[in-house]
Nucleic acid binder design. Structure first.
Lengths: 222, 222
DNA sequence: ATATTTTTTTTGACTTGTCTAAAAATAATA
DNA sequence: TATTATTTTTAGACAAGTCAAAAAAAATAT
């Protein structure tokens, strides 16, 4: 069974909302994420429900069924593998690839995504540090924490971002903070929750609360 | 300006019919190629005409406008570059790639196709020997003739196929007739227009009229 | 030149996905 | 608990793309 691109995008949105909020996704939350109206969402929920891709009770929000969960996972797998391709093979930067991957993720055919996976060396994480589920939908978990939770003296390695906007990614590039960059917290400023950190080459940076709340690090036990 | 996938597919069909027949494409010819009805085609021709992508006169067939020609050429470029990617990089065979390329050709974004072109080494021909237009829409021409036109004693190198069906491509694989294979015509059978040819390793094959009319060769002056 | 066949277009209907405006249900507050 | 505010659904409409059946135009044959 194959689904329309619109249906696939709704399933992805429901997946991401349910995961982040830890509960059923509301009509309004879905409408906000899809940049559409609540009326359109209700319509689509009815259709997805008829196809048994979601569990839907009127006024009570929606969760993915097992088959809906599989479709969403496969989409995320494709999206992230194509992002690896675009960055590793075609030389795009991590802030340029989202729109292309949004289109490429809808290309149908298991053989394609699996060959792509193999060609890329079966990567476990995409260029933003997000995990790539394998062909069976299994995720690789990795301990990481927001930089904002580290204490003075703690050290860590950048593993991912919470905010995927171009503006944030380009800011990180300017600061030399790519994935894998190592950091040590030198000083915390309680006044505005900014941090001074030392990074590669003993360079020191001051990072705002907003930045620290959108940057994941794997902490190193010193 | 961006066009729907349906519109793009119609433009491609009109391009290919006009080129093969050397005249305006008829409603029925388009319907046959698109596997749809004449009524649907008439409807779409009206829309494409409103967008100035085609020159359309009722009952008189249709030709591409300059902008329609550009769109069709760009699509063919994308289709064929993705086919090169699928064969050269992902290891698919030449009979497996058409359906994937039909989807991939609709992915939007000039940067993507141009980076892909570069990554593949700016190939001039796809895995079936068909020419790939460059970013400006210029085609590489190459002298080639159908094998059926060769005379006894003529030698040539396989450069392409007229028939792109899986059945034909797999038949050629079985006979060891990949692109680049060299051939010499040993004998012609006027009765059924079949040919006996010698190929690599002094192997001899008898090829039917149908095969010879679907295989292009570059003739070698002996 | 007229009749017949073929091709093309028109008509009306259906599906998917979208929207605005209004109604209904739920949640929040007094 | 009654009222208000928010969320969600319904109703009706529209655009894109499709189809079958009927009508019109063009091509062909007599």
């Amino acid at each position: 069974m194959t689904h329309s691109q619109a249906e696939e995008n709704y399933l992805k949105a429901i997946f991401s909302i349910s995961e982040k909020e830890g509960k059923a996704a509301s009509t309004n939350a879905i409408a906000a994420m899809m940049q559409t109206t609540a009326a359109s969402v209700t319509d689509m929920l009815r259709r997805l429900s008829e196809k048994n891709l979601i569990a839907y009770e009127k006024y009570r929000g929606v969760t993915l069924s097992e088959s809906g969960h599989k479709v969403a996972t496969a989409l995320i797998r494709k999206h992230r593998l194509w992002e690896v391709f675009l960055v590793d093979k075609l030389g795009f930067t991590w802030d340029e690839v989202h729109e292309f991957a949004e289109q490429l993720e809808h290309v149908q055919g298991d053989a394609l995504v699996n060959r792509l996976d193999q060609f890329l060396g079966n990567p476990k994480f995409d260029p933003h540090g997000d995990p790539i589920p394998d062909a069976q939908g299994r995720w690789t978990h990795r301990p990481q924490a927001l930089l904002s939770t580290l204490q003075t003296g703690d050290r860590g390695v950048v593993t991912g971002v919470e905010d995927h906007t171009t503006a944030f990614l380009q800011y990180l590039d300017q600061q030399g903070l790519a994935l894998g960059a190592s950091l040590e917290v030198i000083e915390r400023f309680p006044y505005d929750h900014s941090l001074r950190v030392r990074t590669h080459g003993d360079r020191e940076l001051v990072l705002s609360e907003k930045v620290c709340q959108n940057l994941y690090v794997r902490t190193l036990n010193t």
